[in-house]
């Protein structure tokens, strides 16, 4: 059954994209969870939807438009938070509801691409094209290099931003870098997981891994493993039972999270 599934080129593409996204989302997700900034992924996912809507309306690449919209919003959010000192959750709430409102208006203006939009909302294993894989490969590699290059600094900032800054670490620059990387990862993820569900792939693996009470490095590795397992099982379930891939992946994540809760009742 598994070999048969992997014979199909669309499933091969879905698996390559899914595994790539699983690693990137869970790795970057660790930092936003520890900084109590989990809503960032949800907000940028909604902003990506605006990009997708604009792309579909204007006949441009929805993926590229999602990347642009998500990047622009991430910079504005970080600017308002760090320079203007606005509360993170308030800024995120404004962008989340604002972008959803804008996406709904654009969708209702066009009216004719609802079926296509559905796959962007909840993910579809049929929708990953070879071109999408190239875009994911290039931007995903860049995001991975940046996350690994500044991994220890991002960890320090998550633990104690003031002491990291006092120690000479360029906190403002790295904060902008992190939100940019997350924005790109979210925009790239929408083909496989969908805009409404990508937040779960970023947040649930680190939250479940933290329950096991280990240091940061083993926690991060476990988080990546949880994301990879969920993507493999979720995509397989999506193929076997004709389910939206994003929903299947998130349900797997939830099951693992519940197991982590039951095993580590602290």
């Amino acid at each position: 059954m598994i070999y048969e599934m992997l014979d199909y080129p669309f499933m091969q593409r879905a698996f390559i994209a899914g595994l790539m996204i699983a690693i990137l989302a869970s790795l970057s997700g660790s930092f936003i969870v520890l900084r109590r900034y989990s809503l960032l992924s949800e907000t940028l996912a909604h902003v990506s939807l605006v990009g997708v809507s604009v792309g579909l309306l204007l006949g441009m690449s929805p993926l590229w438009m999602a990347v642009l919209a998500s990047l622009a919003a991430s910079w504005m959010i970080e600017y308002l938070r760090s320079v203007h000192g606005m509360y993170s959750d308030s800024v995120l709430a404004i962008f989340l509801s604002g972008s959803l409102a804008l996406a709904i208006v654009i969708v209702s203006m066009a009216g004719s691409f609802n079926a296509s939009l559905f796959s962007y909302l909840f993910g579809s294993i049929l929708s990953v094209s070879t071109e999408d894989l190239w875009v994911m490969g290039i931007f995903g590699s860049l995001a991975m290099v940046l996350l690994l290059a500044f991994f220890k600094e991002l960890y320090f900032i998550a633990f104690d931003e003031d002491v990291a800054r006092a120690g000479g670490i360029r906190v403002t620059l790295l904060n902008f870098m992190l939100v940019s990387v997350i924005a790109v990862i979210i925009a790239l993820s929408i083909r496989v997981v969908g805009t409404l569900l990508i937040g779960a792939l970023m947040v649930i693996p680190p939250v479940a891994a933290i329950r096991f009470g280990m240091g940061f490095y083993p926690t991060t590795l476990l988080s990546i493993a949880i994301a990879l397992i969920s993507v493999v099982i979720g995509l397989s379930a999506s193929y076997l039972f004709s389910l939206p891939s994003g929903a299947a992946i998130v349900l797997c994540l939830l099951i693992i999270f519940i197991i982590a809760l039951l095993v580590n009742r602290r």
Binding site: A149, F150, G167
Partner: peptide, 22 residues
């Protein structure tokens, strides 16, 4: 209390600025 950091990981942060990128 739930932050995933061991004592050694926290103390090692003191060396991060000296280590540079990668």
């Amino acid at each position: 209390s739930t932050f995933p950091a061991t004592v050694r990981e926290v103390v090692a942060m003191g060396r991060y600025a000296r280590r540079g990128i990668l």
